[in-house]
Nucleic acid binder design. Structure first.
Ligand code: SF4
Ligand code: SF4
Lengths: 162, 162
DNA sequence: TTAAATAGGGATATTTATTGTCCTTAATAA
DNA sequence: TTATTAAGGACAATAAATATCCCTATTTAA
């Protein structure tokens, strides 16, 4: 069970968009080139972000994407769920229903303990993702990335932002 | 990203084995029949449990599986990792290495903030699974499953345990 | 002693999910 | 008007999950 690579792509793209000045947009083309990713496929990830309302888009030359909210209002969970979906990682196939001892017509009232425990763990994962926002990420990145690289990347992006 | 259904199977099988009297074994055939699962494929899941050292096996008629430790010593995480593997759910494809602004020969020293945050969430998930053991599960199940069904299932299993 | 039953595991097939490409459409700015 | 963009549908390629089949060594029950 491994997350789609689109999750990593979306997180990186949002990190870039978080540094974009107000009113500017960055295109799929630029984001794909910056990260060395297939443009058409990255586009699907960005569309997921758009459908989830995390980014705002415009068409035409100088069009592209910007964040729909402030970085502090966008959590990792928002981005992960936009791309990966909100479905819980454990799905119950209700195999207890096959128990040969089960009386005819007997119907389980509620999810059993196995499922509940697995769902609690899933929720612990989501809760942790919910607790980190984009502003915190860019703060950390700005401290860890060499300032020369940080600056040149910023300029590279601004050069292409519409 | 959804866990294999083998995870559910393994958890249910372990729950059954946890109720098995000392020295008794239950075969793949019985476990598959009880849960309504394909015997040959369930066998792969049980082999994973065996390779992880969670269960003990014997061959021949009256052979099968029993837990290798007491239910209190077996956590959900043990079982999930035996079947699903220990690989973290977020894999870093190091797309930052494609940054066109990156100086030649520049080598990232350590995993970046994105990966670390995703790995912390993964660890939160595992920690929660680590905190629940099989003894707790069977305790809950015994309270929630109607006693008539609980008893008849127990007898069904004992009938087939070698 | 023999025959049946078992776990283990290799090979392979089927189905589903992920990854990736290509193309069309409508909107938009230069 | 024209070039550029996001959106999205159709489709292809690849990888992973699911499933089946068969063989082997071991063990126990008859
Ligand atoms: S016992 Fe729980 S996990 Fe198993 S099938 Fe029922 S609800 Fe699902
Ligand atoms: S997650 Fe971090 S380490 Fe992985 S590619 Fe992105 S920036 Fe690099």
């Amino acid at each position: 069970m491994i997350l789609k690579s689109q999750v990593e792509w979306a997180l990186h793209c949002c990190a870039i968009l978080a540094g974009l000045p107000d009113g500017r947009y960055l295109s799929t083309k630029a984001l794909a080139e910056f990260h060395g990713l297939p443009k058409e496929y990255l586009s699907k990830a960005l569309q997921s972000l758009s459908q989830a309302g995390l980014v705002h888009t415009t068409l035409g030359p100088s069009g592209g994407y910007r964040l729909a909210k402030s970085p502090a209002e966008l959590s990792f969970l928002d981005i992960v769920e936009a791309v990966e979906g909100k479905t819980r990682t454990f799905v119950c196939n209700n195999i207890r229903a096959n128990n040969p001892c089960r009386p005819q017509g007997y119907c389980e009232s509620s999810p059993c303990a196995v499922a509940r425990i697995m769902w609690e763990a899933d929720e612990a994962w989501r809760e942790r993702l919910r607790s980190v926002n984009l502003a915190q990420l860019t703060e950390t990145l700005s401290q860890e990335i060499p300032s020369k690289l940080w600056k040149s990347s910023f300029e590279w992006v601004l050069d292409r932002a519409g």
